[in-house]
Design a protein around this nucleic acid. Structure first.
Length: 316
DNA sequence: TTCATTTGACCCTC
DNA sequence: GAGGGTCAAATGAA
């Protein structure tokens, strides 16, 4: 019986090469820095995949001094995640060594850097004119919309997606029966992950959720980090008579699990990859249950029960 | 005491 | 000016 991880390692290696080739086409001259970084990430991933393959083919040789199969697998996935993140960030953004986004002006000079603790920036002259006292006293609303971030939507019966989110706001939306909830990645401050999502129940189908994802996860908790925060049953807290329904309690579970248990691998891939690339991988049968691994590796088969849409206009 | 959620306020975009 | 996105103080839960 073939080892499923070996199969995975065999499949993922050519995928890294394919992705690297795509990079050559997708990256223009002006984003060479990003390209270099992504190539470096992919090379690291490739190296980990090779080590993983060797490790699985020669399990006896492993003396414990090298990374485990799980760690290698995690590194491969992280390599992909970081690569995709850089690939899909705006043309004037470069992700630095620690995963922070650094903005460059038209002349190529660095104009600012966003740190994990100071993700907002003031860019307008008017903003600069504002009183410093006022800003330090109350900075509510002083943000910069991420118009360049890639977005895609997901319509599903559940808002669960195996990522840890923290709710930071909720708004009543005009002409909408249900409020819109705003979530950011719970790793925003410790890992600088920029992923956010907006969740809103569909008026015509109250049991369905329209989730808009903005930005990819760059955090490292996609495969085996604990789920620190998930969803409460207060998604629509302002809407009485809705939260008490049976289906609601079923599809918005209060989960505090140590490790994602089901559909982790493919959901994480789907969540973190550019959907066009995800589509390519899907076509290449990487997503199929053929890579069902044992629970020891936390990798499972997956299937899509949701409608998945990607706004490609952001990449044009 | 710590941390997540709620909610009103603030600011940006259209 | 309206609507939407985000912040942060207040509040609640563990």
């Amino acid at each position: 019986m073939p080892n499923p991880i070996t199969n995975f390692a065999k499949k993922i290696t050519p995928q890294i090469s394919t992705l690297s080739e795509k990079m050559s086409i997708l990256f223009p001259q002006c984003v060479l820095s990003n390209r270099k970084r992504v190539l470096r990430e992919l090379l690291q991933g490739h190296e980990c995949a090779t080590k993983l393959k060797f490790l699985l083919q020669n399990p006896i040789i492993s003396d414990g001094s090298t990374l485990s199969a799980e760690e290698l697998l995690s590194n491969v996935e992280r390599s992909f995640t970081h690569s995709i993140s850089v690939l899909t960030s705006s043309d004037t953004e470069v992700v630095d060594e620690v995963g922070q986004i650094v903005n460059y002006g038209e002349n190529g000079s660095q104009v600012g850097a966003n740190s994990c603790n100071d993700l907002r920036s003031e860019d307008s002259t008017e903003s600069k004119k504002r009183s410093l006292t006022t800003r330090t006293k109350d900075r509510r609303g002083s943000y910069k919309r991420r118009r360049t971030s890639e977005t895609w939507t997901n319509i599903s019966e559940t808002i669960e997606d195996n990522h840890a989110w923290r709710k930071y706001g909720q708004k009543e939306i005009l002409n909408s029966k249900f409020p819109r909830s705003y979530f950011r990645c719970s790793r925003k401050y410790d890992q600088g992950c920029q992923a956010i999502k907006q969740v809103q129940r569909i008026e015509e189908k109250p049991f369905m959720y329209h989730t808009t994802y903005i930005g990819f996860h760059t955090c490292k908790d996609t495969l085996n980090a604990p789920q620190m925060v998930t969803y409460s049953d207060t998604l629509d807290s302002k809407v009485p008579n809705e939260k008490d329904t049976t289906f609601c309690s079923q599809i918005i579970p209060i989960i505090k699990q140590e490790y994602p248990k089901e559909d982790t691998f493919n959901n994480d891939l789907k969540d973190n990859l550019d959907p066009t690339l995800w589509s390519d991988l899907k076509d290449l049968e990487l997503y199929k249950p053929a890579i069902v691994l044992s629970k020891d590796f936390g990798v499972f088969h997956s299937h899509f029960s949701t409608d998945f849409h990607f706004d490609e206009s952001h990449l044009l």
